[in-house]
Amino acid sequence: MIRHLAGKVGGALVSLLFVVALGFLLFRVIPGDPVVAMTRGRPVTGDQLAELRARLGVDKPLTEQFADYLAAAVRGDFGTSYVYSRPVLELIGERLWPTVLLTGTSTVLAVVIGLWLGIRGAWRRGSRSDRISTGLALAQWAMPTFWLGMLLSLATGDLFPSGGMRYPDTPSDFVSQAVDVAHHMVLPCLTMIAVVYAQYLLVMRSSLLEEMHADYLTTARAKGLRDDLVRRRHAVPNALLPTVTLVFLHLGLVVSGAITVETVFSWPGLGLLTYEALTGPDLPLLQGTFVVLAGAVIAMNVVADLLYRVLDPRVRAS
């Protein structure tokens, strides 16, 4: 177990290193001259360009740039934002918690709703409620997240605040602040749940359907178990295994959801920061958010793998 853990963490670290290197490739090598890419469509003088080049260190040869970049990245230094003129890591730190709050809440709710509806659908396959819930899930899956967000905000009118995380004039005590944040979070959270739960529903449903004909369910019925016990004790624990992996594999979906939802609702998180960085374009900032978002997904996958080991005795032993 310990050895496996070490192996997984080691593998994740290698992946993380790849991400950092990919960040360099994307933002320093592919654009040719990053400074030109960043100042495209803006009047800049030659002096300003030269100064920017020196600040980013892009006037040095690529190998030297890479070495500098790597050394800085290991220290957690992703340079200075071009738009904000502040360290990238500091900006990311500020924006991290709103994103964790939003994506965490909506993922947990989406998983609960999705799995519950998926189990119900598979067990009563072909019934009216199954057809409706599957059809609805497919339709929601087809919807672009941001469009749904805009529609929701259009439909609810002034019921919920359409942007930001809190009003500036809210009293500073904890309860008022919490209520205010929750009020702001309703629409973005609903939007994210609506799109993400569909995925979980479909995965859970098909994975339970695959277990439906398993021989051990016949054994359980032969023992005299009630239908709901057969489902709860025998079918669902087995069907959950592939679902867990897929839920975590689809975390990328949550991340992309966060980017568009935060953009639509001006939720001050990493997604909005990414959007601000790409409109700049503020390459150091975009690089930073890229590495952090990718790194977070990699870390969550390690968690998923460990969770899978706890859940599945077959993997646990090997």
């Binding site: 992946s15 991400v19 994307l26 933002f27 592919i30 654009p31 990053p34 890419a37 594999l249 975390l251 990328g252 991340v255 992309s256 980017i259 990414t274 790409l278 374009p281 390459l283 975009l286 958010t289 890229f290 978002l293 990718a294 997904v297 990699i298 996958n301």
Partner: peptide, 14 residues
């Protein structure tokens, strides 16, 4: 594992 939208954003920005 990489979030594909983030990668696509990076590519189309540069």
């Amino acid at each position: 594992v990489l979030p594909s939208l983030v990668l696509a954003i990076a590519l189309s920005t540069v």
